[in-house]
Amino acid sequence: MRLLRQTTALAAGLLMSVSVMAAENYNSYQQEEPGYFAMIGDLVIARPLLLAVTAVGAAAFVVSLPFSAAGGNVAEAGRELVVRPGAETFVRCLGCTRSGYGRKQQDENL
């Protein structure tokens, strides 16, 4: 029984240290320039998906236009359905996690 408790405590300690290290790496990734894998993943996976989301959002905006016009929130619907996904697709730098024209502009906005 004592061995089971020691093993469980050791496993819990290892899991906590791994999660702390992962959180530190994630935070440093947020602050530093994106690396090779982040850029490739963004180019191959994220950008095509965001382009599809932008196209679906534009179609949804056109379909919802009579209802949003009646409700008086055409600008909000356009911003949320078309502009924000479009900005994430075309304005965000390759591999970055926030939209903007480049890393310097993002740092100035913080």
Rank of each mutant, 00 (worst) to 15 (best):
M21K: 12
Y36N: 05
L110T: 15
A12F: 01
R103D: 03
A22H: 09
A38F: 03
A22D: 08
A87W: 01
P48Q: 09
R2E: 14
R2T: 12
A58H: 03
N27S: 08
A55Y: 00
F61S: 08
V44H: 01
A46N: 05
V44T: 10
S19M: 04
N25K: 14
A60C: 14
V44G: 09
A59H: 06
Y26L: 10
L10N: 05
G86N: 04
A77D: 07
V56S: 02
S19D: 09
V53Y: 01
L14S: 03
A55F: 07
A87T: 13
A59V: 08
E108R: 10
M1C: 06
G72T: 06
T97Y: 04
A75N: 13
Q105A: 13
T8D: 09
F90M: 12
F90A: 13
L43E: 15
L81Y: 06
Y26A: 15
M21P: 03
R103Q: 15
R2Y: 13
I40L: 11
R5N: 12
A55E: 04
L43N: 08
K104L: 15
S28Q: 14
L4G: 11
A77W: 00
N27V: 15
F61E: 02
S64E: 10
I40V: 07
L81H: 00
A70Q: 14
V56R: 05
Y26H: 11
G41W: 01
R84W: 06
C96W: 00
Y36T: 08
E33T: 13
T89S: 01
Q6T: 04
E80V: 10
Q30K: 07
P34C: 05
A9K: 09
Q6A: 10
F67T: 11
R84S: 00
S99K: 06
L94K: 04
E33M: 09
T54S: 08
V74C: 09
A60W: 03
A23E: 09
E33L: 12
Y36G: 04
F67Y: 06
Q30R: 11
A59P: 05
R103G: 04
C96S: 08
E33G: 04
G57E: 01
E76F: 11
A23R: 07
A59C: 07
A22M: 03
D107T: 11
Y36I: 06
V82F: 01
E80G: 02
A9R: 09
L10K: 09
R84G: 08
T89Q: 00
R92N: 02
G100W: 00
T7W: 13
N73H: 15
R2V: 11
I40K: 06
V91I: 03
Q106F: 01
V18K: 04
S17K: 05
L51T: 07
V82Y: 02
